[in-house]
C-alpha cells in the first residue's frame, strides 16, 4: 500500500459518505454540507492527480461560490421549505436508472485498453501551460461564453428586480 493509494481510499470513503448524505438526507442544509464534502474530496483527487492549480481553482471559485450562494438562497426561503423528503413514487425510477448507469459504466470500464496507469508526479509549469491550453485554441469559444454570460446576468437582474411602486 503506497501513500497515494491510502490517500485515495480515504478520499473515496469521504466522497461516498458525503454523496450518500446528499442523496438521502431530508434537510436541504445537510445536503449542501454533503456537497461541500464532495467538493473538498474532489480537490484532494485533483491534488492526487498532479493538478495543483486546478485543485486551487476548484476550491477557491467553485466550492466557495457554490457553498455561499446555496446558503444564501436557503437563508432567503422559509424555514419549513428546507425540509425536502424523497418522492416515494420516484425512488423506484431513481434506483433503476442509477443501477442501469452503474452496469453500463462497469461494462465500459471492462472495455478499457491495457495501459491505464496514471503518473502521480507534479508537472513543472502547469499554470502557464494551462493558460495557453485554455486561451490559444479556444479563444472564440471563451469569448462567446463570456458574452453569453454577460447577457444572461443582465437578463437575470431584470428578471428578479422587484418593482418599487
Amino acid at each position: 500500500m503506497t501513500p497515494s493509494i491510502i490517500t485515495f481510499c480515504l478520499l473515496t470513503l469521504f466522497v461516498i459518505g458525503s454523496g450518500l448524505i446528499v442523496a438521502f438526507t431530508k434537510n436541504i442544509l445537510h445536503s449542501v454540507f454533503g456537497l461541500l464534502g464532495v467538493a473538498i474530496s474532489m480537490t484532494g483527487y485533483f491534488l492526487l492527480l498532479s493538478a495543483p492549480w486546478t485543485a486551487l481553482i476548484f476550491i477557491l471559485i467553485y466550492t466557495a461560490l457554490t457553498f455561499v450562494v446555496f446558503l444564501f438562497v436557503i437563508l432567503l426561503t422559509r424555514r419549513k421549505e428546507i425540509i425536502a423528503t424523497l418522492s416515494i413514487s420516484h425512488i423506484g425510477y431513481g434506483l433503476v436508472l442509477s443501477g442501469l448507469l452503474i452496469v453500463f459504466m462497469s461494462l465500459s470500464l471492462l472495455q478499457l485498453p491495457g495501459v491505464t496507469e496514471i503518473r502521480v508526479v507534479a508537472p513543472e509549469m502547469p499554470l502557464l501551460n494551462l493558460g495557453k491550453s485554455m486561451v490559444s485554441p479556444h479563444f472564440i469559444v471563451i469569448e462567446l461564453f463570456s458574452l453569453t454570460l454577460v447577457i444572461l446576468f443582465v437578463g437575470l437582474v431584470t428578471l428578479i428586480r422587484r418593482e418599487v411602486k
Binding site: L48, H90, S98, M105
Partner: peptide, 30 residues
C-alpha cells in the same frame, strides 16, 4: 503510478448518486 479505473469507478458512483438525487427529489435546490 496508480491505475485509472478507481477514479472512473468513483466518478461513476458520483454520477449515479447525482442522477438518483435529480430523479427522486422534488425540491428545486435539491
Amino acid at each position: 503510478m496508480m491505475p485509472l479505473y478507481p477514479f472512473l469507478v468513483v466518478a461513476s458512483i458520483l454520477l449515479a448518486l447525482g442522477l438518483f438525487v435529480v430523479v427522486t427529489r422534488r425540491h428545486l435546490i435539491a
